[in-house]
Amino acid sequence: MKKLGDVVVPFHRENRPLPDPEAMLRTLLRHPDVRRFAERHPELPLDCYRRSLILLSQFVTERTSCRQCPGLEKCPNSAPGHYPVLEQYGLAISLKLTECSKLRSHKESERRRSLIRSHHIPVEIRNATFESVELSAKREEAVSAAIDFCMEFENGLPDKGLYLYGPFGVGKSYIAGAVTNQLASIGIASVMVHLPALVEEMKGAINENSVSDKVDALKTTTVLILDDIGAETLTPWIRDDILSVIFQYRMTEHLPTIYTSNLSLDELEEHFAHTGKGGFEPLKAKRLMERIRPFVRPILVEGRNRRYDQ
């Protein structure tokens, strides 16, 4: 079965009377996208455009919708998540529907999520938006930094990720959740996982021979959000063969990462130095932190514990 993006829509779908077709044609030909197409194909006669009024009308309507995009879920186009492209076939015009960046990003995020079962992100965090974030003086810097992080994608990838740390229940994960939804609205792929649950899943993935696939999904996503880092049960294998591999790749490829934690960066380094059975390896901990510390903006998030709110 062909993908929708590869299917060319026939240029004649309907045969119904058009009100004042010549006036409609003149209006359509003035549209910038139609005009550019006509300039690229001077060999097409005017009659070709006359025969394609309905197609051209659909093209202009949907291109206008794309420029005022309301988001993937509210896409008004005939094929949601697709934008139209005019194509020439001999002396005829056809319309090709192509997946937009938001749909491609959504599919890529879903593919990555299918590889990682232990997101363990509560529904209220998955649905978080910056509009629903409760502002307070003690969270203002974190919220502002998160918004700035998303806005930086207008000019490419941000130089640094975020390290949101502080007491339990102050909203660190909620702010991170708002980032994922804002990024999705602008077509940027991201994956948010609860790290302690992920660690347990990685241990089980050994028998499934799926560790490599899971690591690849995490290390290559455009934005990775690791929730509650420092709360995981640490082993040398998790630190050196899982986390180190993910962080090394993301550092090399300049891919931004957001962390939430109850620990400061110094406390996280101490956490990484201690492994099971009394192991203490400060050099390996420092090496891992060199893949985190220079590439994040640390922000203390404080306030009341909202988990006790009724």
Rank of each mutant, 00 (worst) to 15 (best):
S101W: 05
I258Q: 06
H119S: 10
V34K: 03
T252D: 09
K160G: 10
R250D: 09
I246L: 01
E201R: 06
W237H: 06
K172I: 12
P80C: 09
T222Q: 01
A145W: 04
C69Q: 03
D228N: 12
G161R: 13
L115W: 10
E281G: 11
I299W: 08
P122S: 10
P167E: 11
K286C: 05
F280A: 04
P84L: 09
N207M: 13
I299R: 03
L29W: 00
E99K: 15
K138I: 14
L195R: 10
T61R: 12
I238K: 05
D20F: 00
E269T: 13
F153D: 00
L44P: 07
A23V: 15
K107R: 15
A285Y: 13
D266V: 14
F280C: 11
M289A: 06
S105H: 03
K107H: 12
T257E: 00
P42E: 03
I93K: 00
F130V: 11
V245C: 10
A189H: 02
S78P: 09
L162G: 09
D216Q: 14
T222N: 02
T220I: 11
V301D: 07
E154L: 14
E232N: 08
V8I: 13
R40N: 08
V223T: 15
I186P: 04
K277S: 06
L4R: 12
R40A: 04
R36S: 07
H254L: 12
K96D: 00
S264Y: 04
L29D: 03
D227G: 14
G177F: 05
R50Q: 04
I299P: 13
A231L: 12
L46D: 02
K214A: 01
G81R: 07
Y89M: 08
G187P: 04
P298I: 15
C66S: 08
R126F: 00
G71V: 09
F280M: 14
E108F: 07
F130G: 11
L53K: 02
V34T: 02
L164K: 07
I116H: 06
R293T: 15
F247E: 04
A205T: 12
K74M: 11
K2F: 06
R239M: 06
M24L: 13
K3D: 12
R50G: 02
T129K: 02
L268A: 05
R304P: 11
K107V: 07
T61G: 02
T233L: 04
P256C: 06
H119V: 10
L243N: 08
V296C: 14
G303K: 05
L95T: 01
